[in-house]
Design a protein around this nucleic acid. Structure first.
Lengths: 341, 341
DNA sequence: CTGAAAGCGCTTACAG
DNA sequence: CTGAAAGCGCTTACAG
């Protein structure tokens, strides 16, 4: 027989509490099955024993060994979050925020989050997590066309959740509902304008898919306040803007993203048009640059943390084998700052 | 007895290969102990059986269940990488790169990396990873004074590795050896200058610890080429620089970091002094801004990926219970670009 | 060199 | 409501 004392020693090195369910059982004169049931709060158990066991566990800071639990329960209590090896600064910020949300929710359910970094042509690390059975489900971001990771996961039958769209309606995904949020954000910005004001939307290239959503969001926002008789125009080339600005005195300028917005701000500065006093301005895409601009510029912010939380909830649910809605939404945040005051 | 078939089904849902060591054993008419030994390449085993087993395993894509392996071996095959919930853009870039290095090395040893996000006052998620025994060792970055995470890990006897300094000499850490690298980088920049040239070091506040290291690195670099009769000066206030520049015609200007460097570049531009032709310039701290400046500016780059790799190696070693050197170094990269041509 | 057995710390039918 | 037993899939002394 293995030297029991030796094992105890080893486990002390690794563990915080010395107690196993077995220990608690003998300490309390119960069987370990009963202890297990009392602790997991499942199966028939008398209130008295349950409370006794839970009190004891709490008092002694008992922590179940999750590895053992995982083995017995045929699951790993791990989620994987997939992120690319190579990323732009913007993507990293986005991932970091997503990850915060993912980790937050996961840990509430006793799950840990394992990072799998993949290269475009090589799902290597995700693959070994899958093949080594270290994860119960996966969260993907930034799908490529005909995504390698998706293929891998489909083949191995591990449930996965996608942040963003692009994998088809049937795949569980959570989207930030750009169009609707742009419409609502437009309304929010219009809120302080008097009826009949002039509104300009300066839009980046319509070759960019996101800009199409933003444009139609803007248009549907304007449509829904038709009764207020706002006048509006859309300018799809920033370089035209310098002229456009001379034609009318705009009350509000909305920009498709932060880059466009900064260009517009530059032009306004050249023309000595004061942001806030002369014209309100806002962007459909936030960035530090807008936040720290003087005056700070209002913007629609994709709520990466919330996307992380939601995808985590779904991944957890899928890991439990429960059915999930495939289409899920998370709202953006409206960062209302001085530029629209 | 549990319904064996049912179990098989469940496990198929989770697993890639249907084979367990038991399966292989019966398939090959061996005992599972022998299969285990053959696969782990440990213990006495005949070449013949080892090869037979390994061939079979390979052919059928057998993957050991790491959860079971972990339980039997009293370890988790997981590392934790700790990162803060809140981080600046710069920190996120740094972490992302570290993480790439960590994950790369860890996966080579069959380890996975679990992200633990912590708040300054709350090691919550790290704590539960520790208490739930989900990790064998930990990698920390950005230690706080009197760091909570360090205290937690000390108490629980989980080995940990620190990226950067600040935890004392006795703690296993990996440092980027700023001073020595600044000295070497200085030499690299001096390399194309003729003897007797004028060199200026523009240094940010000496209240910042890093700047002290940079300054003494610079000085020791200059010291080591004394024979070449370079003249040099140190300017510790960027605002003085505009005057300083008029006094002499400098051949090379070194800056303590990217922010200082951009300020200097601005001044040079105002004075119509051309970088590259009139004066060479370089920074002891890199950033995208320097890389994409026109002309691109040479800089010393902390090699976050290498720091990640090294810390991962150490953490893996510590997890195996092997002794590690406590002081470890990783060299910086010299990003030589047009500004010093 | 190989096998039978006990063990890692849980869970969960099954029987009482 | 509770306990004894078998099981999750590995590892590792121990005996042959």
């Amino acid at each position: 027989m293995r030297n029991r004392l030796h094992n105890k020693d080893m486990s002390n090195r690794l563990r915080n509490s010395n107690y196993t369910m077995d220990d608690i059982a003998s300490e309390l004169g119960l069987s370990k099955s009963t202890v297990s049931r009392a602790l997991s709060d499942s199966g028939r158990i008398s209130l008295a024993t349950r409370e006794k066991v839970q009190a004891f566990a709490k008092e002694h800071g008992f922590r179940p060994n999750l590895v053992a639990k995982a083995l017995a329960g045929q699951k790993t209590l791990n989620l994987a979050a997939v992120m690319p090896f190579e990323a732009t600064a913007y993507q990293m910020m986005f991932f970091h925020e997503c990850l915060s949300g993912i980790v937050t929710r996961a840990s509430e359910s006793g799950y840990s989050v394992l990072v799998c970094m993949t290269k475009p042509d090589d799902s290597g690390i995700l693959r070994s997590a899958v093949e080594n059975q270290k994860i119960d489900s996966v969260i993907l971001t930034q799908l490529k066309h005909d995504d390698e990771n998706v293929k891998l996961l489909r083949k191995s039958n591990i449930p996965f959740v996608v942040i963003g769209s692009g994998a088809g309606e049937s795949v569980i995904h959570v989207d930030s509902r750009m169009k609707e949020n742009c419409a609502d954000f437009t309304l929010e910005c219009l809120d302080r304008l008097s009826d009949g004001s002039q509104v300009l939307f300066v839009c980046g290239s319509l070759d960019v898919e996101a800009n199409n959503n933003r444009l139609s969001g803007f248009l549907s926002g304007m449509e829904s306040v038709k009764s207020k008789n706002f006048h509006y125009a859309v300018c799809t080339d920033v370089h035209d803007f310098a002229d456009e600005i001379s034609l009318k005195s705009w009350s509000l300028i909305l920009c498709s993203d932060d880059v466009v917005c900064l260009q517009v701000l530059e032009i306004l500065r050249e023309k000595n048009i004061s942001v806030g006093a002369d014209v309100k301005i806002a962007s459909f895409h936030d960035s530090v640059l807008l936040e720290s601009y003087s005056p700070p510029v209002s913007a629609l912010k994709v709520d990466a943390f919330a996307l992380g939380e939601k995808s985590s909830e779904l991944a957890l649910k899928a890991a439990r084998g429960e059915k999930c809605e495939s289409v899920n939404y998370v709202d953006c945040s409206f960062m209302m700052r001085d530029s629209t005051e």
